[in-house]
């Protein structure tokens, strides 16, 4: 059993008012935890609450000191007219390009606004996933990816990642089933393992 990276107890989170929870789970190094549930259940809100990105109304998130979190949020920042290349993007987060799929590796020298939506999504995922971090939070990682992209991601996540704990929010049951070592179901009444 790996070291506990995250202990979540009775977490209720939201913005002006609570919108998600209560949620309880532990995450250890080497685990990939899936948060599944219908749209509007508050999965993305709970993910943000793990690092303080939204208001916590009840419960707590306990992390060992010095734990680094990398979070890939949903949606794109508008990158039109911003001359940043894929290689520069990876350098920003400290993610190495080694291991990228060939169809993306050969485009690293291109500007981000010259990439397709799927290519950009995979690159952002990679920049987050491979950044130096103990905990990686992925919010709907398969959005915009074609079949090849999802397969590559699933294969990569399916290999042993003993150094990290990963939490994935997805409404893609096939991806969750394929890569996650544990599943927490989130719905309007809360969450249960």
């Amino acid at each position: 059993m790996g070291e506990v990276l995250l202990r979540v107890e009775g977490l209720v989170a939201g913005y002006a008012a609570p919108v998600a929870g209560p949620l309880a789970f532990t995450l250890r190094r080497g685990e990939i935890l899936g948060l599944a549930g219908p749209n509007g259940a508050g999965k993305s809100t709970l993910l943000k609450a793990l690092w303080g990105g939204v208001k916590v109304f009840a419960g707590q998130v306990v992390k060992p000191p010095g734990v680094r979190i990398s979070h890939q949020a949903q949606g794109f920042t508008d990158l039109r007219g911003v001359p940043i290349t894929g290689r520069e993007l990876l350098a920003l987060t400290g993610a190495p390009p080694e291991g990228l799929p060939p169809w993306l590796a050969e485009r690293l020298g291109l500007r981000l606004d010259r990439l397709s939506g799927g290519q950009l999504q995979f690159l952002r995922l990679w920049a987050c996933l491979m950044a130096p971090a103990d905990i990686v939070l992925l919010d709907e990682p398969s959005n915009n990816l074609d079949r090849a992209g999802v397969d590559y991601l699933a294969d990569w996540l399916g290999r042993a990642h003993a150094e990290q704990g990963i939490v994935i929010v997805s409404h893609d049951p096939a991806l969750i089933e394929r890569v996650c070592t544990r599943l927490v179901q989130v719905d309007a009444r809360g969450a249960q393992e």
């Binding site: 690092w51 979190i69 920003l92 920049a127």
Partner: peptide, 18 residues
């Protein structure tokens, strides 16, 4: 440079690390 670029392309990057 890095902070300004990250704040635009990965707004959560620094905050998620506290």
């Amino acid at each position: 440079n890095r902070s300004l670029l990250l704040a635009h392309v990965f707004p959560e990057f620094h905050r998620a690390r506290g």
